[in-house]
C-alpha cells in the first residue's frame, strides 16, 4: 500500500528507531506497567516498614499512572511536529496531496491509538482495579482525546522546541486535577472541571461503586475533551 499516510508512518518509524525514541515510547509506558505489577509488594513493604496501609490510595495511584503513557506519547509526537516545523517539513507537506490537515490527522491519531492501547493494557494486564469493560472503553476514549489535546497544546502555542518544553511543564499541571478530585473533600474541587483529567478521575471513582453517575462522567467528560480539542485545533490551523 502506498498512501501518504503509510509514507508518513514509515518516515516516523525511521525517525523513532534511528533516534532510539522508540526506547522511550515503549519503555516509558512499559516501566510504568512493571511498576504497577509490583504495586502490591510495595504496598506490603510500606505497611511493614511504616505501619501505614497505602491500600486506600491504590485507585488514585492506578488512575494517575495509567495516564502517564498518554502524556509521554503526546510529548513525543508534539516534539516530532515541532522538529518538523523547525525544519520546514510541514510547509512542504502542505503542498502535497496529503495537505496539512491530513498530516495533522495522522500526527494525532497515532499517539491517540497508542495511549488508548496502553491504557487498556495497563488496566487489564495488572488487574489492580476492577473496571467494567464498557466503562474502560469510555475512559480509553477520553485518554485518547486527552493525548491529542496534549500534542496540540504543545504545537499550537509554542513556536519552537524550547518553548515547547516550557509548555510541556505547564501541560503537566493539567494532571493536578486527579489528586484534587481524590483528596479535596469539598465541592470546590469542581473548579478543576475544565481540566480533562478531572473527568477521568471522576469516572474511576464512580466505576468502583457502580454509580449511575459514571455515565454522566463519560458523556460530559468526552464533551469537555472534544470542546478543548476543537479549540486547540483551530489555534493550530490558524497559526500555520
Amino acid at each position: 500500500m502506498k498512501t501518504p499516510v503509510t509514507a508518513l508512518a514509515r518516515g516516523d518509524l525511521k525517525l523513532i528507531v534511528r533516534d532510539s525514541t522508540l526506547v522511550m515510547a515503549v519503555f516509558g509506558p512499559l516501566a510504568i506497567t512493571i511498576l504497577l505489577f509490583f504495586l502490591p509488594s510495595i504496598e506490603a513493604l510500606i505497611l511493614i516498614k511504616f505501619g501505614f496501609d497505602p491500600g486506600p490510595f491504590r485507585l488514585f495511584i492506578v488512575s494517575f499512572l495509567s495516564l502517564i503513557p498518554g502524556m509521554l506519547f503526546a510529548m513525543i509526537y508534539g516534539f516530532i511536529v515541532l522538529d518538523e516545523r523547525d525544519e520546514e517539513v510541514i510547509d512542504f507537506i502542505s503542498i502535497t496531496p496529503l495537505r496539512k490537515e491530513g498530516y495533522l490527522t495522522y500526527k494525532l491519531i497515532m499517539p491517540m491509538l497508542l495511549s488508548a492501547g496502553f491504557f487498556l493494557f495497563i488496566i487489564y494486564a495488572t488487574s489492580l482495579v476492577r473496571l467494567n469493560p464498557i466503562h474502560a472503553m469510555g475512559i480509553a476514549i477520553m485518554v485518547a482525546i486527552e493525548t491529542a489535546i496534549g500534542t496540540l497544546f504543545l504545537v499550537a502555542f509554542s513556536e519552537n522546541k524550547v518553548e515547547g518544553l516550557a509548555f510541556s511543564k505547564v501541560l503537566g499541571i493539567m494532571y493536578l486535577a486527579i489528586p484534587l478530585v481524590f483528596f479535596w473533600n469539598s465541592s470546590w474541587h469542581w473548579i478543576s472541571a475544565f481540566l480533562p483529567p478531572f473527568w477521568i478521575a471522576k469516572a474511576f471513582i464512580h466505576s468502583q461503586t457502580s454509580s449511575i453517575w459514571i455515565w454522566g462522567d463519560l458523556v460530559l467528560g468526552t464533551a469537555v475533551h472534544l470542546v478543548i480539542l476543537q479549540y486547540f485545533l483551530q489555534v493550530f490551523l490558524r497559526k500555520q
Binding site: T21, V23, M24, L165
Partner: peptide, 15 residues
Amino acid sequence: RHVNDYFVKALGIGL
C-alpha cells in the same frame, strides 16, 4: 541529534 533523542538519553540517565 533531536529533542526526542536527547529525552531518551536524559530520561534513562535521569532514572
